[in-house]
């Protein structure tokens, strides 16, 4: 029994030896990072990655700004956050270690929708139908916790009055 067993072990190990030659020259199995949709948020049609660095080019596709960006100073550090105004929504950024990140996106009117088609004026049931039960349901608002950000809907008489994307400061 012992010889038989040892032979089988040696045999299968020999087999394993052939595999590396074949596999290694062809390279690591090509698994592109599955884009799980939690990592992205969208303003109308344009998609952004949560936690990405924000530069002038990042905001360019969003169209013209309706007014000059306003600054948000902080107590001691010179890195100032900014509030950009666009038609239908506003974007707030903050600065950390010299890099600018998204801090908040605030929908102002129904000309812009979320990636699931919810706009200002949608009903509470439409929101729940699209996003399911909220993580944090309050009298005037529903909050959905996602990776690195919160999705917040404000209501008055069961109609969405505001939509906010709030990003966690890393």
């Amino acid at each position: 029994m012992k010889q038989h067993l040892l032979k089988s072990i040696v045999l299968c190990l020999a087999l394993c030896l052939l595999l590396p030659a074949a596999v290694s020259c062809q390279g690591e199995p090509p698994h592109e990072p599955q884009a799980n949709e939690e990592d992205y948020f969208s303003i109308g049609k344009i998609r952004f990655a949560v936690g990405q660095v924000v530069t002038e080019e990042t905001l360019a596709p969003l169209g013209a700004q309706t007014r000059e960006p306003e600054e948000a100073p902080n107590c001691a550090f010179d890195g100032k956050g900014k509030l950009y105004s666009f038609s239908g929504f506003e974007i707030e950024t903050y600065v950390k270690n010299g890099l600018t990140y998204f801090y908040g996106v605030y929908f102002l009117d129904d000309s812009i929708s979320t990636e699931k088609g919810i706009t200002i004026g949608s009903t509470k049931d439409e929101v729940i139908a699209a996003y399911g039960q909220a993580n944090d349901a309050k009298e005037g608002s529903l909050t959905y916790h996602r990776k690195g950000m919160d999705l917040v809907f404000f209501f008055r008489d069961d109609r969405v009055t505001r939509i906010h994307y709030l990003f966690t400061v890393s």
């Binding site: 306003e70 908040g104 605030y106 309050k138 909050t143 917040v152 404000f154 906010h164």
Partner: peptide, 11 residues
């Protein structure tokens, strides 16, 4: 002079 209001909160 900023005529802007604060950004609404949920709580």
């Amino acid at each position: 002079v900023s005529d802007r209001e604060g950004i609404p909160l949920t709580d």
